Amino acid sequence: MTGTSTIHVVAALIRDQAGRVLLVRKRGTTAFMQPGGKRDAGEDDVTALAREVDEELGCRMISGSARPLGEFEAIAANEPGRRVKAAVYGIDVKGEIAPRAEIDEMIWVDPLAPPDIVLAPLTRDHVLPLAAAGKV
């Protein structure tokens, strides 16, 4: 689509012992999505992901746990007319997980049977199907 700019981000696929996937909703938005965000200047994917997880959830990414799951594109959930391209990683975390910074809400969802909530297109079309297929 002409004139559509793409936002480049990193996103974390975090699962609990039951296999549920952690989703977050940012302040002032309706769509649930993976934790993550834009890279700061000079950051590689894993460094950006570790920083974003700490800022948004207060937990720590376990060193060496980042598993690249692929790059996916979708319509941006919160920025009309834009697309998002996400480098998605499966990661393991330690410490208490709680919404912080711009995160208003977090939920754990079964990727095989997500609840009736608004999901970001990237989460709905790529991440949850990947988790449901057991690839992570």
Results as ranks from 00 to 15, higher is better:
residue 24 V to I: 15
residue 99 P to G: 04
residue 81 G to C: 03
residue 89 Y to Q: 05
residue 134 G to P: 03
residue 102 E to W: 01
residue 39 R to L: 13
residue 55 E to C: 03
residue 43 E to M: 12
residue 6 T to D: 04
residue 5 S to A: 11
residue 48 A to V: 09
residue 8 H to G: 01
residue 9 V to Q: 12
residue 30 T to W: 02
residue 44 D to G: 09
residue 78 N to D: 05
residue 74 A to H: 13
residue 41 A to K: 14
residue 4 T to E: 05
residue 125 D to T: 12
residue 125 D to S: 04
residue 6 T to A: 03
residue 6 T to R: 10
residue 92 D to Y: 02
residue 74 A to Y: 11
residue 32 F to E: 08
residue 39 R to P: 00
residue 109 V to K: 15
residue 40 D to E: 13
residue 86 A to Y: 07
residue 21 V to L: 11
residue 84 V to A: 02
residue 91 I to R: 07
residue 56 E to P: 00
residue 123 T to N: 06
residue 92 D to R: 11
residue 48 A to F: 03
residue 53 V to T: 15
residue 59 C to F: 12
residue 86 A to C: 05
residue 24 V to Y: 06
residue 43 E to Y: 08
residue 24 V to K: 13
residue 129 P to W: 11
residue 9 V to K: 09
residue 87 A to G: 04
residue 52 E to A: 10
residue 97 I to A: 12
residue 98 A to E: 11
residue 38 K to N: 03
residue 46 V to D: 07
residue 56 E to G: 02
residue 10 V to S: 07
residue 27 R to N: 02
residue 132 A to R: 14
residue 103 I to Y: 09
residue 62 I to N: 06
residue 68 P to N: 12
residue 73 E to I: 15
residue 86 A to E: 13
residue 42 G to R: 15
residue 102 E to R: 05
residue 46 V to M: 03
residue 55 E to A: 10
residue 125 D to H: 06
residue 8 H to L: 06
residue 9 V to M: 09
residue 125 D to M: 04
residue 108 W to F: 02
residue 26 K to A: 02
residue 103 I to D: 06
residue 13 L to S: 11
residue 35 P to W: 07
residue 14 I to Y: 12
residue 89 Y to P: 00
residue 74 A to K: 14
residue 9 V to F: 01
residue 36 G to P: 06
residue 134 G to N: 12
residue 111 P to W: 07
residue 113 A to K: 14
residue 103 I to E: 08
residue 29 T to M: 00
residue 12 A to Y: 13
residue 104 D to T: 14
residue 80 P to H: 09
residue 25 R to K: 11
residue 129 P to C: 08
residue 133 A to V: 10
residue 124 R to D: 03
residue 122 L to P: 03
residue 122 L to E: 07
residue 6 T to F: 01
residue 3 G to I: 10
residue 128 L to T: 08
residue 18 A to P: 00
residue 123 T to Q: 10
residue 84 V to E: 04
residue 136 V to C: 10
residue 39 R to V: 04
residue 15 R to G: 02
residue 59 C to N: 13
residue 101 A to W: 12
residue 96 E to L: 11
residue 107 I to P: 00
residue 46 V to A: 05
residue 70 G to I: 15
residue 73 E to Y: 04
residue 111 P to A: 08
residue 32 F to I: 12
residue 114 P to Q: 14
residue 132 A to I: 09
residue 83 R to P: 00
residue 82 R to S: 07
residue 128 L to E: 10
residue 64 G to V: 08
residue 118 V to N: 06
residue 84 V to T: 14
residue 58 G to N: 14
residue 101 A to Y: 06
residue 18 A to Q: 14
residue 25 R to L: 02
residue 84 V to M: 02
residue 40 D to T: 07
residue 129 P to D: 10
residue 15 R to I: 10
residue 27 R to D: 03
residue 83 R to E: 07
residue 84 V to P: 01
residue 64 G to L: 11
residue 95 G to R: 13
residue 93 V to Y: 08
residue 129 P to S: 07
residue 21 V to D: 10
residue 29 T to S: 02
residue 132 A to G: 06
residue 15 R to V: 14
